[in-house]
Amino acid sequence: MIEVEHLRKVYSTKGSLLNRSQVHAVRDVSFRIPEGGAISFIGESGCGKTTVGRILAGLETPSAGIVRLDGVNIHQVAARERRNLLRKIQLIHQDPYQALNPAYPIEQALSAPLRIMAKQKGDTPRTWIRDRMEEVLTMVGLDPASVLYKYPHMLSGGQRQRIVIARALTVEPTVLVADEAVSMIDVSLRLGVLRLLRDLREKLNISLLFITHDVAAARYLGSGGQISVIYKGLIVEQGPTEGIISRPQHPYTQALLSAVPVLKGLERMGADRFILAKEMNAQSAAETGCLFADRCPFAQERCFSEAPTLIDGDYQYACHFPEVRQVAAVAAE
């Protein structure tokens, strides 16, 4: 179980003391993923969703906030222990083409972490590394005999991403952070990788943080999944996946859902679908009021003066004028 409370990350830009400016990448993010649970962070580029993933994986230190893994605050323990804790959280990158060393065969990519583990475990049988490699490769749906001695360039994008997932699994993680893990994979293979992540959740009880801009992909992570919609480092809406898709309250969530292409012939366009024309202005310094107000087609005066807060409960949203709009496409049959 992983718990995150009031996470904040501020980057300062380089420059003289006087004109140094601050970028609020993550403003206030709280969530918890139970064992075997899944949460998807959805938002456009620059909204801070990747930073959340990097903080969780230990690649960034938060400016404020608490990250608790099975009850232990990972930023309040000794460095050595933190390393062991962080091993339980594995990050899967977007680009499987860059995540594997092109000069090493798959066998080496997988055996390196296993050798360290074998040393830590002490008395392991001699074939342990080999067995474990075959076990994780089978788990991700690859045939060990045929891929083990191949080089990354001999594999397709989908196969590489499976290798990256297999490598993450070697160290027996309890949390996987998948950052846009399917967006660079061929469409015909994308669903297969999503299926795999879902199986890992169900079979190994791994918690999943799935970072994406594709709302549809989030649905395929299995039942009990949650969606957090994040905008400029702030969660604007959070709830069960199906609920967010069918009854979105926040205009930003609605904009994201409207942006999903409609499959003519299979789906009908949502009745209230709208296309957001204005781009995100990262520099806009309007710190009073709702962060989304300058782009929101439904913004009213109050939105510019007073910041909405996240309403507590199973289904949370931060909007002064919430209204359910039918924006997602619906099946035609």
Partner: peptide, 19 residues
Amino acid sequence: AIPRISGDIDRAVPLQGAP
């Protein structure tokens, strides 16, 4: 094999094999 936001998710089936 298209992930969709409508319909039953179990009707989506991954395509087998490599491109």
